[in-house]
Structures are given as C-alpha cells and as structure tokens.
C-alpha cells in the first residue's frame, strides 16, 4: 500500500460518508419532478390527471400567501441542512496510529482508555479514578487522587506524553492532565 492510498483510506475511515445525505437529497429532488413528468405525459395523452394538471399543481402549491411562505421556508431549511452536510467535515471521533505495514484507525474512546491507564498507573491509582476525553487535537485527563496521597501532575503529564509518543497518533494530540482537588478516601 503506497502512501497516497494509505492517507486516502485513512481519511475515509475518519470521516462520515456523504452518501446517505446525497441519496436523500436526490430523492427529495426527484420525487416532485417524476410526479410532474407523469402528470405532463397524462395531459399529453389526454388522460385524466392523477391529482391535478401540471400547471394547476404549481398554482395550488404556491396559490396563497401562506403556502408560498411555507414552501419557501421548507426549501430554505432543506437547503441549509444540505449545505451543512456538504461543507461540515463530518469527522468521526477517530485517529490513525503509525504502523509500517498497516493502516490502523482507532476510536477516540480507545485512545482515552490508553491515556487513562497510563495516567492511573503512574499516579498509583485504580484505573477507574482516571477519566479522559479525547478531541481531535487535545486530550484532557482528569485524576481523582486518594485522600492523603498527593499525585504529581508532572509525572502524569510525562506518562501521558510518553504514551502519545509511543502511539504516534495522527492528527497529533496534546494531553493535558488535571488532578482534582477533592480526593476519595482509601482503597
């Protein structure tokens, strides 16, 4: 697998596909047109319309002031939704790991777990005392210390930094840790 393919596949797996949005948009656009086409053909053949004659349909849909505004508003809303879907990056919470032979994409939850584990074991805490949230460029690690036993924030920072270096995720992440001021008694 060459570099270009790798980055392309990586991108594909880290972003939401637009195919669903595209097919829905196409259906929304196609159904009225198909209906109008059917009515036109029926009119040409001189048959009775399914509902109304084509020009009559347009008249009915935009007849009154309220209907005109309603149709316009619906069009605006649909248009905005489609614009957002088209231009938003559609990122999924995932990162790529550096690997020589394979393309490895992991969910951010997995990275968060790895960082929590590194932080907790450095601080000498149970795994459930650390919680991490991973964003695209940043990870926030928060630790709940055991009452009476101080946790060194610097050590934790170093451990999470080392873990991130080892994983070499891309896009790269900076970890920030926080030791909560309130502790938990014992265990």
């Amino acid at each position: 697998m060459n570099e270009r393919m790798r980055s392309r596949y990586g991108r594909r797996m880290r972003h939401r596909s637009r195919s669903v949005a595209v097919s829905i948009a196409l259906w929304i656009a196609a159904l009225p047109l198909v209906y109008l086409a059917i009515e036109s053909v029926l009119e040409l053949l001189g048959a009775a319309p399914l509902w109304q004659e084509p020009l009559q349909v347009i008249e009915t849909v935009t007849g009154t002031q309220a209907l005109r505004f309603g149709v316009a508003a619906a069009a605006v809303v649909i248009g905005l939704v489609l614009l957002v879907l088209a231009f938003a990056p559609g990122r999924l919470g995932r990162h790529e790991l550096a690997d020589e032979r394979m393309l490895v994409v992991v969910d951010d939850d997995v990275l968060a777990g790895a960082l929590s584990r590194a932080a907790a074991s450095t601080a000498g805490l149970q795994r459930d005392r650390a919680s991490t949230s991973v964003g695209r460029r940043r990870a926030d690690v928060s630790l709940r210390p055991t009452s009476g036993f101080a946790v060194s924030k610097d050590d934790v920072d170093r451990a999470t930094e080392r873990e991130l270096e080892r994983l070499a995720v891309s896009p790269s992440i900076r970890a920030r840790s926080r030791v909560e001021s309130a502790g938990v008694v014992g265990r």
Binding site: S147, S181, V184
Partner: peptide
C-alpha cells in the same frame, strides 16, 4: 472515621 479534605485526610 476518615474523610476527604481537599485531597488530604
């Protein structure tokens, strides 16, 4: 009885 007092006991 032990309680937490801002990270100390």
């Amino acid at each position: 009885d032990l309680h937490d007092e801002r990270g100390s006991l």
